[in-house]
Design a protein around this nucleic acid. Sequence first.
DNA 1: TGACTTTCGTTTATCGATAATTTATTCTTG
DNA 2: CAAGAATAAATTATCGATAAACGAAAGTCA
Lengths: 213, 213
Amino acid sequence: MTLTRKSLRQQIKEILLTRILQGEYQPGDRLIELQIAQEFGTSQAPVRESLRELEALGFVESIPYRGARVRAVSQQELAEVYPVRAAIEEVAARAAAARLAGDVSALEAEIAAMHRAADDGDLYAQVCHDVAFHRLIVEACGNRVLQEVWRSLRIEARTLISVVKTEIEPHQLADMHRPILEALRAGDGELAGRLLRQHVEFFGELVLKGEHA
Amino acid sequence: MTLTRKSLRQQIKEILLTRILQGEYQPGDRLIELQIAQEFGTSQAPVRESLRELEALGFVESIPYRGARVRAVSQQELAEVYPVRAAIEEVAARAAAARLAGDVSALEAEIAAMHRAADDGDLYAQVCHDVAFHRLIVEACGNRVLQEVWRSLRIEARTLISVVKTEIEPHQLADMHRPILEALRAGDGELAGRLLRQHVEFFGELVLKGEHA
DNA sequence: TGACTTTCGTTTATCGATAATTTATTCTTG
DNA sequence: CAAGAATAAATTATCGATAAACGAAAGTCA
């Protein structure tokens, strides 16, 4: 009788992903199938499938017969995400304005949480709530394809890197979300979209500037 | 000595994908691992991995212990692709205008090919060149992330469905691309982006209208 | 010495078989 | 006859072992 509800593949994938996101595995580190299998007391097969999934998600890259490594996210790639994000979040905001019907309480809560995190000097929490704010808008838009694309950008994993490299006053960062929220409250999707696009593009430019550091 | 250069997994994946795209496997059809393995004379493992990849690509969906099926693309999903496509192709066109430096010969060739296909009444070829036109712009933009997202929309697989359901005169369809080309030739990214966005949105609306059919 | 070949250890890719799970079917039992 | 338990059939998930490919190190010959 197993206590586990999920498949081994799923469990292993999640553990590996956690390790990658938390930096336990560094970019470039090799992920050797049998070695990992041994650690978890499983056979090679589920580990192999996990790695393939992580490869599809873009966290790992592998070469035939040479194995898998943690993928390094280049500064260029990081910067390239922003124009795409800006464009699809604009679309999301336009659609979200109508569907939210002025109910922006969840967004309000995220801004408040950002301020709390800023007070505590908890950078990680601040990033989480920042991302959550954006995710709420994307999820409110009702377009599944858009949501899937947004998720595929893996913004959680990348934003953290960006923020660390930029130098913005945390409370100011939180307040930058307020005009977007107000536009959504007013049901003005056109405005909300434009503001959100500019907001995201602004950070894209910050990343570009940080490139010389 | 094997004649095959690629891994079994890769080969099987490609064959299965072809069958799905060509409609040999219909949406909802079950893909049974051992059955496929037997057909190709391999073991279950490479088939299984192929199915997992196709699942990640969105062509197949699977439920634990219940197997994989060819994924059905709903009309809704089809319609939802267009706003996303419109947004990212707009970004692509803006960037492409600068990088093409007025060299639109490849685009010109695709429009010509569309007309030839229209003359031949070859709908499939027409769709291919239509998609190729858009792909050329996306590839010219230089943003790898954007390209990856565009590919993930699997426009080849979906456009075919759309076109079949719409009733546009083929030559007219081809000519609709010309203003975009001219804007790119003139290096006016802003205009090219706007035109391309409208162009894609136009088809999105066609799909919506066809929904009642 | 230096380019080429061979050998060896490591790791992935594939295999064949078994365990686990689901669905359908048959068998109770009231 | 219907509801539920037990069983059977089909299929996926996992295993342990083997084959194939790669990279590095040792060996060979001019």
